[in-house]
Simulated scan of single mutants.
Amino acid sequence: MSGVTFAAALAALGGCGLLGGPDHSPAAGSGGLEKPSIRVAVMSTIDTAPFRLAQDGGYFAREGLTVEATEAATGQAALTKLIGGEVDIGYSSYTPFFAAKSKNTADIRLVADASSAAPGSTAVVALPGSPVRSVADLAGRRIGITAPNTMSDTLTKSVMQDHGVDFSHVAWTPVALPNVAASLKHGDIDAAFLTEPFITQSAKAVGSVSVVDTATGSTRDFPTAGYGALGRFVTESPKTVAAFQRAMLSATRDAADRAKIEPLMVKYAGVDAETAARTTLLTFRSTVDPRQLQRVPDLMLRMGAIATGVDAAPMIVPQVVG
């Protein structure tokens, strides 16, 4: 998921009040953080809007926390930065986190949730004149995905399996999300998995239509992305982690007001105001639910994305409430 980088400030929006951010002094008990300045790898996706709201709206500052955002092109890139020590916390779809845990390549701990798939927010799309008109037509086709064994092909395989469609002969074709519309137009692929705002952008650019909503059946309300850290950071900086969680909890709650999110999409996710208004948002979340999250590694195992099962619960950092 890429787009323009989330790098500029929100000064043009008129300050924290317009963002819905708190304008009062830091909360009591926010002092004494082990690491008051942290670096977080994020991607230019619409489901990081609550993070930007927390950063530029003063939510982190209220907790005595300074957060420096580092752009990552993909979830795997964010994970690489995390493992390499470039950042303290990384945002990613859940699949790279569980793949790393399954292979024992990193001690991944999940700090906060980010999003779940809402109806219409993730889909397989095709051109109107394409022979791909339903999920049944996906068998044996060339389907564009972000990369193998990611959320894109895992969700698509699950929906195909739900409908009894064989996916063993599908030509899974890596295509960057911003390039999907052109690939469809040029006939390089027959269909593609997309998330918002790329579903809306592709429809606007080449008239693509949703063939199947991948947030249905076994993957209804499926956890899609979250924020992870290494075990050492979590152990050494529990107050810092809790401060991050409190800020994200508050910002995610306020992100329910779409008026606060659409300007962020326009300024930082590379979409115009019309697309921002029409985009179907993912469901923003902050608190990690162990039972819900377990669905991710279980599905990855069934779809062959990981070779060994993963118990999600021990990976979850204790969550703040309030």
Rank of each mutant, 00 (worst) to 15 (best):
E196Y: 00
L13S: 10
V296N: 03
A7M: 15
S250D: 10
Q319H: 08
D221T: 05
A277P: 08
L293R: 01
L194T: 04
T275F: 05
S102P: 08
G84W: 04
A28T: 14
T156A: 13
L19W: 00
S152D: 14
R253L: 03
A112W: 00
V87T: 13
A106H: 05
G309T: 09
P178D: 03
V125P: 15
R52M: 05
G90S: 13
L301C: 07
G84P: 14
A215T: 02
G228H: 04
I316G: 09
R302V: 14
L79K: 08
G226C: 06
L184T: 05
A277E: 14
T214H: 07
A72R: 02
G20Q: 00
V4Y: 14
A7E: 15
F51W: 08
T235E: 09
R142K: 15
A112C: 11
G75V: 06
T308Y: 09
K267N: 13
I46H: 00
R302G: 14
G75S: 08
G14M: 07
V180Q: 02
G217R: 02
E86D: 15
N104W: 06
V135Q: 01
R253A: 04
T235H: 09
S210G: 11
A269S: 12
I143C: 10
T235K: 12
F51M: 12
E34L: 10
T195H: 06
G144K: 12
T95E: 07
V234Q: 00
S115E: 03
K157N: 15
G120L: 00
D166F: 00
G129P: 14
D137P: 11
M151K: 11
A182H: 11
E196D: 11
F60I: 01
V209Y: 04
G85I: 13
S250Q: 10
V266D: 03
Y268Q: 13
V87N: 07
V132C: 10
A41P: 12
